[in-house]
Design a binder for these strands. Structure first.
Lengths: 103, 103
DNA sequence: TCAATAGTTCAATATAATTGAACTATTGAA
DNA sequence: TTCAATAGTTCAATTATATTGAACTATTGA
């Protein structure tokens, strides 16, 4: 059984959030999640078609462990949602401000 | 002669800015710069007393090459200023929003 | 039961961060 | 004008992180 690790709200850090978003590929993943209505599979959110799936999996793990997204398994695929509310509790307005400039 | 490299405004990237600020030490350096009125030497902005000066120098280079700070040599020391105006031209409001949560 | 799908984990290699040691440049004093 | 002190850079070595192919796990549908 694959167990996904998600930090609690109080464990989300500024450097962690910035670090997770400080990568063009991960910015595009999060941008795609917003565009495609927020709850999508990993491959659907992929920033480019030729990326190795292990790399994609790694990027999702980084986003997950920084508290940016929440991942749950539904059937054969993972569904990912942005943790906007949680991040806003910790850093009000920050996420929107950053994602305004993504893509 | 030491030549400092600074990107032009249009070469400042979102991932670059986020990457430069995605480090607790660098967040503290920038926080210290704001607290101590913006134009300070490297050692004055140091995030902790026991950091190797080569490491400190490295962090200032990261901040400089991301376009976060501008460095100039004045006498025996370096003076560093935040490039708030330049970053605001490229990403209006972003820097303030991030630094609101630093420290 | 078996193949297909979606993703994870592992191990190897490639890239970035940290640090001590040696260096450069500027100042101020003998 | 020489010499020590100060402030930082650069280099080389080690350590940590990212990327990827290959092998694995879990779920679905035929």
């Amino acid at each position: 059984m694959v167990q996904f690790v998600h930090p609690s709200v109080e464990d989300i850090t500024l450097a962690g959030v910035l670090g997770a978003l400080a990568d063009p590929m991960r910015l595009r993943i999060v941008g795609n999640m917003i565009k495609k209505n927020d709850c999508i599979s990993c491959s659907e959110a992929a920033p480019c078609p030729n990326m190795a799936k292990s790399t994609l999996s790694h990027h999702f793990r980084i986003l997950r462990e920084a508290g940016i997204i929440r991942t749950g398994k539904v059937g054969v695929e993972n569904r990912n949602v942005l943790r906007s509310d949680d991040i806003n509790k910790r850093f009000p307005g920050l996420l929107d401000e950053i994602l305004k400039f993504a893509n």
